[in-house]
Design a protein around this nucleic acid. Structure first.
Length: 268
DNA sequence: ATGGCTGGTAGAACCAGA
């Protein structure tokens, strides 16, 4: 059967888009996604590296950057709705952690970088941990009232399932896999019946990590990974998903990000 | 050996990531 014209959407925490421009270009050449969502661009909008993306036809570049840290962007080869892109501040502190647009087919695309949450999993001792939970709480209230078919992608900084980390037991007290984070993320998921595409296509308990620390001497040999990056779809959007992959090989590219890209293909 | 590294920005015996 002849392939349909699919819509391919990628998401990648790039840990500085300027430092990784070569490997971002390699991904665009090898995978030719229609849309690429980036997190941790670490660049203000004024100095975003537009040229490489323009050269590959990504004429729509929706940016939300800030100095030093964080920052998100949506790069697209297909037209996006002309309406003003949404920028939610779910942490209520001005950090650049979300950008959203509407696709021509009416589906909304929301690109989010959830706060890491610091080291100590206790909001009394560590304000960042409380801010992370509050960020998810505000996202949940947004999600409860959501009526449009939506694809929510990004670095959620939580590995929810036991099989989403290299050692459930050893990570129970480590921020990203604590019970309170898993419960809070679960409330977000329930609030819209979000479909976790990573687990629809790679069912638990199969290994499906998206992040490996820079500090391991040999990340692949130790394989102490976590599934921190996600693509969640409204039920009606999930029905259109025909393929989903985590591009683990990108972790071995020269000067890699510590996260790898996720790609979902939709039949539209 | 869950921080052993990494980037941004300053020009750090720094900060943040997760």
């Amino acid at each position: 059967m002849a392939p349909m014209a699919n819509l391919k959407i990628a998401s990648w925490n790039i840990n500085s888009v300027r430092a990784r421009l070569d490997i971002v270009e390699r991904l665009l050449i090898e995978e030719t996604p229609e849309i690429l969502c980036l997190q941790e661009t670490k660049v203000v909008d004024e100095t975003f590296p537009h040229e490489m993306f323009a050269r590959h036809g990504y004429d729509q570049r929706i940016l939300h950057g800030q100095p030093m840290h964080h920052g998100v962007a949506i790069l697209s080869r297909i037209p996006l709705d002309a309406e003003t892109p949404a920028r939610h501040d779910w942490q209520d502190n001005g950090e650049a952690r979300h950008i959203g647009v509407r696709l021509p087919n009416g589906i909304r695309l929301e690109n989010v970088y959830v706060p890491a949450g610091g080291d100590i999993p206790d909001r009394a001792q560590n304000a960042k941990f409380g801010q992370k939970l509050d960020f998810l709480g505000r996202m949940t209230r947004w999600s409860e009232s959501l009526r449009e078919p939506t694809l929510l992608v990004g670095d959620f900084n939580i590995a929810p399932l036991e099989c989403d980390v290299w050692s459930h037991k050893q990570l129970l007290d480590v921020v990203s896999h604590t019970p309170i984070e898993v419960e809070t993320l679960g409330q977000l998921q329930t609030s819209h019946d979000w479909i976790d595409l990573g687990r629809r296509f790679v069912p638990a308990p199969q290994r499906n990590y998206t992040w490996w620390s820079y500090r391991a001497k040999d990340w692949a040999a130790s394989d102490r990974g976590r599934r921190l990056d996600h693509m969640w779809a409204s039920p009606a959007v999930a029905e259109k998903a025909v393929a989903h992959r985590v591009l683990e090989s990108c972790r071995s590219w020269l000067r890699p990000s510590d996260h790898v890209p996720l790609i979902t293909e939709f039949e539209v």
